[in-house]
Design a protein around this nucleic acid. Structure first.
Lengths: 105, 105
DNA sequence: TTGACATGCAAGTAAACGCTTGCATATCGT
DNA sequence: ACGATATGCAAGCGTTTACTTGCATGTCAA
C-alpha cells in the first residue's frame, strides 16, 4: 500500500474524495462528469483513472467490478493515521493530548 | 498560505513534525541533528531549511527569532482542515457522521 | 574588531508527477 | 455477431519537487 499523504497532495484527488463522500459508489464516468460539472475541474477520463489508481493504492478507495462498470467506494480509514500521528488535530480545540509534551533528550 | 496537503506529502517534513511533537521549539541545527540521529534521515542543513519554509508556508510551523537562532514551533491547527473535510477520520471508529449519506443528484 | 557560529538566498540538476495520446480489452444491448 | 459503451495499458512530455552547491548576511564571544 502506497503513501496516503502523497495521495492527498493533489487537489483533483481530494475533489474525488469529496465527491465520494457526497455519494458513494460511483463509476469512473460519473466521477469525471461530477468533477467537471460540480467541482470546476476539467479532468480527462484517463487523468481521473490514474488518480483513482493512486487513491486505491493508498487504500482510500476500494474498487468493485459490476459488469462493465467499476464501482468506486470511499474508505476513510487510512486518514486516521494522520490524526493518530499528530493527535492535536481533533475537532475539539481543547482536546490536544500532546500539545504540551516535555522533552526527552 | 500554501497547501497543507502538499506540505505533508514529504516524509522528511513529516519527520520534522514528529520531532517537533516530541520537543517543541527547536532550531534548524537541532532539527537536522535529530533527523539524522533519531529518524534515520540524512538531510543537509539547506534541505531541512527549505522543508521548514514549506511547513511555515502551510502554517504548520511558526518561527520566532532569538538572537542568531530561529526557533521553530509546531502548530497543528491546519491539520484540522483534514479531519473537518472528511469527518470520518476521527479517532473513534463508531463516530462516522457522513459514512452513509444518501445521494442528492 | 575579529573569527566562529547560525542562518539566508539563489541558481542548477535529477527525479517524480500529472497529463495527454493512442491503442487494446471487455461487457452490454440489439 | 456487431456496434456502442466502459475501462485498461503504456509511452511520451512539460512542470514541479527535493536536493545540492556556492556565496552572502547576521549574531555572538573574546
Amino acid at each position: 500500500m502506497s503513501d496516503v499523504y502523497k495521495a492527498l497532495a493533489d487537489e483533483t484527488r481530494r475533489a474525488i474524495l469529496d465527491e465520494l463522500v457526497r455519494r458513494d459508489e460511483q463509476t469512473l464516468f460519473e466521477l469525471v462528469n461530477r468533477l467537471i460539472s460540480a467541482h470546476g475541474l476539467s479532468s480527462s477520463r484517463q487523468a481521473v483513472s490514474q488518480h483513482l489508481a493512486v487513491l486505491e493504492d493508498a487504500g482510500l478507495v476500494r474498487v468493485e467490478r459490476r459488469g462493465r462498470y467499476r464501482i468506486h467506494h470511499l474508505d476513510t480509514g487510512p486518514l486516521r493515521a494522520i490524526t493518530e500521528r499528530w493527535p492535536v488535530a481533533l475537532g475539539d480545540p481543547s482536546n490536544t493530548p500532546n500539545a504540551h509534551r516535555k522533552e526527552k533528550t
